[in-house]
Structure formats: C-alpha cells, structure tokens
Simulated assay, not measured.
Amino acid sequence: MILKLCLGIFLIIFILLAITLIKTLLVPKPNKVTEIPTPIDINRANDYGSSLSKLIKIETISSRDDNSREKFFLFHKELENLLPLIHKNCEKMVFNVSLLFKWGGESNQKPIMLMSHHDVVEAPGN
C-alpha cells in the first residue's frame, strides 16, 4: 500500500517536472534587438546641469520653527526664469507655497499627473 502511494507521488512529481521542462523548451527565444545609442548633446547636458545648479543653491528647508515663505517664492521665481515656456503655456495655481501646473491637451486620451516637491524637511541633529 505504501509502495503504491510513494509510486503515485513520484509519478505526479515526474509528470509535473516533465510539463515544466516541455513548457520551458517551447518558450520562444527573444529577438535580438540592437539598440542604437543616442549621442549626448554636451551643450544641452551642460545647460541642464547649470539650471539644476541654480535651483539647488536656493534654500528650501521646511521647518516647524520657521514660517517664512520668501525662500520658496525665490525658488518659484528661479523656476519661472529657467522654464519660461511652462509658465507661459500652462495654467499655474499657487497653494500656500506649492505650485500646480495644468497643461491642457488636445487629445481625448486619459490624462497623466506628474508630481514632485521642492522642499527639504529639516533633520535635526546634534
């Protein structure tokens, strides 16, 4: 009786392994895709780096003890200087010190939302 049970379990395991092996062998091999690397525009990369450098120099630390908003408005002004087309072509809403841009489209496809934040939370330390 035990021998038949062990033989049955062995047979089930063998069948499952055989099915797995056959399915694995039947999976088509992926096509080899050769990707053509896009050349880097050094001038454009330098412009992006320069813009980022200007933005990260502006302090945007949020603190419970400091309610001043001027530093965030300086950041907003620099964003406007660096990204004039976004400020020109998008509907801009300001909530406290947060910005919301609505970029109207001409498509009937579902919209997307891109989100970010520009404050840094203070990490108190010794």
Results as ranks from 00 to 15, higher is better:
Lys102Gly: 01
Met115Cys: 11
Glu106Leu: 07
His117Ala: 11
Ile86Ser: 13
Leu99Gly: 11
Val97Trp: 00
Asn81Ile: 05
Cys90Ser: 12
Leu83Gly: 08
Leu82Tyr: 07
Pro84Tyr: 06
Gly105Met: 04
Met93Ser: 15
His118Phe: 10
Glu80Ala: 15
Ser116Val: 12
Phe95Ser: 09
Glu106Arg: 08
Leu114Phe: 11
Asn96Phe: 10
Met93Phe: 14
Met115Asn: 08
Lys110Phe: 03
Phe101Pro: 00
His117Gly: 00
Asn89Cys: 00
Val94Tyr: 00
Asn108Asp: 14
Ser116Gln: 05
Asn108Ile: 06
Ser107Ile: 05
Glu106Asp: 07
Leu85Glu: 12
Met113Asp: 06
Val97Gly: 05
Met115Ile: 11
Pro84Asn: 06
Lys102Glu: 11
Leu79Ile: 09
Val94Ala: 00
Ile86Gln: 11
Ser116Ile: 12
His118Trp: 10
Trp103Gln: 04
Glu91His: 11
Ser98Lys: 15
Phe101Leu: 00
Cys90Phe: 08
His117Cys: 01
Phe101Tyr: 14
Lys92Glu: 10
Lys102His: 05
Cys90Lys: 03
His87Pro: 11
Lys102Val: 11
Leu83Ser: 10
Ile112Lys: 10
Ile86Arg: 08
Phe101Lys: 07
Ile86His: 13
Leu100Asp: 03
Phe95Arg: 14
Ile86Ala: 03
Leu82Met: 01
His118Asn: 11
Gln109Glu: 12
Pro84Glu: 08
Val94Arg: 01
Gly105Leu: 08
Gly104Ser: 13
Glu80Met: 15
Leu83Thr: 06
Glu80Ile: 10
Gly105Asn: 01
Gly105Pro: 02
Phe95Cys: 12
Leu99Pro: 03
Ile112Asn: 01
Lys92Gly: 04
Glu91Met: 09
Leu83Val: 08
Glu91Trp: 00
Phe101Thr: 01
Lys92Tyr: 02
His117Ile: 09
Gly105Tyr: 03
Ser98Phe: 09
Gln109Ile: 15
Leu99Met: 05
Gln109Pro: 00
Lys88Pro: 00
Ile112Cys: 14
Met115Arg: 05
Cys90Asn: 05
Pro111Asn: 06
Gly105Ser: 01
Lys88Trp: 09
Met93Ile: 15
Ile86Met: 12
Lys102Met: 02
Val97Pro: 02
Glu80Tyr: 06
Ser107Leu: 04
His117Gln: 09
Asn108Arg: 09
Met115Leu: 12
Cys90Gln: 06
Met93His: 14
Lys88Asn: 14
Ser107Cys: 04
Val97Phe: 01
Glu80Gln: 15
Pro111Asp: 02
Val97Lys: 06
